[in-house]
Amino acid sequence: MSVFLEGIAWLFSPDRLSGPNPLPERLAEHLGYTLLALVIAAVIAVPLGYLIGHTGRGRDLAVGLSGAARALPSLGLLFVLTLLVGIGDAPVAATIVFVVLGIPPILAGAYAGFESVDRRVVDAARSVGMTPLQVALRVEAPLGLPLLIAGVRSAALQIVSTAVLAAYVNLGGLGIYLQRGIQLRSYDEMIGGAIVVVLLAFAIDGFFALLQRLCTPAGVRVAGGAAQTTRGRRHRRPATPRGAAQ
């Protein structure tokens, strides 16, 4: 218990702003790695996942590769890659590790989102004369968005917690406190660092939970009975009463 309190005390000590490892700087590094890897992973995985979801092809391959990627020991991969690219390019190695970690959940979210769309809705979209691209972008993508965001959410959590490994190849981030804490047996620093990582993960999770809600199309939200309003967000209610054409 006292160790925990010491950790909190460490957290609020003025040294956190002025010392050799200022917290805001390490936090920014940590978030930076997370964000960069998340964006790269999304840029790779979203189009690929959409393609798999739209065509229904390559799903088994994707599942297999995703499983393999998840099974990779991150720390081992980081060391191997760092040795391969050279210690000077450690940021590249670290980013690759985080991207590899982030791709599977985003890929799964993207194709699961597409697959979740009722085939009859896709059929309807085609039958009114949408091109395959229009069906993908105007129907499958918006309807599959909540599941995609769920995938990005779990990727973000994976990455943010794994990004502590950056410290092991001298790249800073919040992991530095954990690493130093273990090496120097300064448990207050270790606990304090861990608390920050956990809070950060909570914050990211909350952010995506909110985003997921916001990205659920209104027409789908009301179908779930969650909405109290009968009015859409994009159209004002027309003022004209029942038409004169009757």
Binding site: A218, G219, V220, V222, A223, T230, R231, G232, R234, H235, R236, R237, P238, T240, P241, R242, G243, A244, A245, Q246
Partner: peptide, 17 residues
């Protein structure tokens, strides 16, 4: 909407409604 006797007030609703 008039042609098929749908109230114009329903214009902004979603199919599920």
């Amino acid at each position: 909407m008039d042609t098929v006797s749908l109230d114009r007030g329903l214009a902004s609703r979603y199919p599920a409604q």
